[in-house]
Amino acid sequence: MSDKGMNLTLKIWRQKDSKSKGKMETYKLSDISEHMSFLEMLDVLNEQLINEGQEPVAFDHDCREGICGMCSLYINGEAHGPDRGITTCQLHMRMFNDGDTIVIEPWRAAAFPVTKDLIVDRSAMDRIQQAGGFISVNTSGNTQDANAIPINKSDADKSFDAAACIGCGACVATCKNASAMLFVSAKISQFALLPQGQVEAKERVDNMVKQMDLEGFGNCTNTGACEAECPKGISLENIARMNREFIKSAVLKDK
């Protein structure tokens, strides 16, 4: 296997905990294979730091196949790095060149406080989901047959496309307003497009938007950066749909 053996300079955000002040630190790495994933490159750095008796860099990661949404990282000013349609764990070193300096920062948003180094607290996103990101149906062995309600394939496909969101927070990190509209609208759209979800559509959009605002996320000004950086290609159309759902709910106020 051919190895280019890249030499790299890394500038990485280090912060002991949420209460401490952080700063950028510089590290040198040599002989990095182009076939490595970005996180494997960080593994190599950490192995080196441990062997030198230093503290390794803390970063979030788990599945390392682009689906769990745990990995983050703002790399050279881009959420999930320079490639498109992928998460940081799927980014490979062939996207970089020998001699490059790579700047690695955590997600930056008021609603995402830094926990340590490159790890941030994204529990605000969970709380938005807890406010209404569900269909109120209990577990029972007696729900109606799955094929009882045919669903237009195009709607089902669009619902799936919205549901593909992995909740990583790249949309928030990349937005100049730190808005979570793409994330929230994806869940609202998934359910708004299905007959099962339409029953409580009004309560859902009201409650989720309210919680989103409470958490301190910014507003949407239609720059579209979120869509461009989203590893799952969640469409801006979802934000438009959420706005329609929100207005519909306001107009049809019945209480």
Binding site: T143, A146, K153, S159
Partner: peptide
């Protein structure tokens, strides 16, 4: 035996399974 209930439950929860053009799963 309970496998069929799972699909019913998940569809009721809004899991967007793949569908045919006729709208069925």
């Amino acid at each position: 035996e309970v496998s069929a209930n799972i699909i019913d439950q998940c569809v009721a929860q809004g899991v967007p399974f793949g569908r045919e053009y006729g709208g069925l799963l």
